[in-house]
Amino acid sequence: MMPEPNDPTRAGAPVPQGVDGQVRLSMTELETLAAKAARGAGLEWGLAEEAGVAVRWLQARGFDGADLLIRHLKHNTGGCWRDMAPVIEKRVWSSAGSHPLSPITAGTTLGDYATLPDGLEAGPIDLLKVDGPGLLLPFLSGLSHLLGKPCAMEWAGNRIVVFGNDVHSRTSTTTDILTDCADVRIFQPDAANTATLVTPRVRKIAIDTLRGLDALAMSTTVPASEQSRQGAGAGTSDND
């Protein structure tokens, strides 16, 4: 069921559409919605939380994280998330099966492994076939905070450097290059960095993106039954 526009207590966010076909969600709403959508698409709760945080980070910095996420989730609603987790062999991480790597799982694992022998601190890592490299950016930010150094990713001739919460890029970061499926190298660049700083600005999201996330988020809910209705509310008159 899609939530009605006026549905009270919504956990998702059916909001009035602006004239430009865009909507503005608060960062809190967006994070919650993204996490629920990720869960609705079959990611485990702990990874869905990571997705929520990642989308919030992107959206607050001018990237359409919500769009990146919905594209990624729509590719993989069949529930093959386990096959999209990285198998770590030396410095090369690839998926277990024929599927591409999920940037959510790969990014999360990069963070978990950061200072371990297989992690970024020990050297560059090649991620093979990442389904939407843009979603790796927030995890690079996490790595950068942890290691206290800039972290970079390079793919198909593109390079983005993240230092703390700042994003530097030589080329424009279009949706296409962020969502393509590509081999990505993660590394710690030399301190010198001449690339332009991407100016943070909160991105609105398209109504279709919102609907897509809402639809997935709704699949985490349970249809009503007589018994469930009885449990809600005081069961007495409020006219007192």
Binding site: D7, R10, G12, P223, Q227
Partner: peptide, 26 residues
């Protein structure tokens, strides 16, 4: 614990008498 589709509010169900436990909140 689950979120009701009807009202999108948190509710508490009976695991052995109601459907929906596969969508349990963590």
């Amino acid at each position: 614990w689950y979120v009701s589709e009807e009202k999108l509010e948190p509710r508490l169900g009976d695991r052995y008498a109601e459907d929906g436990a596969e969508r349990e909140l963590p």
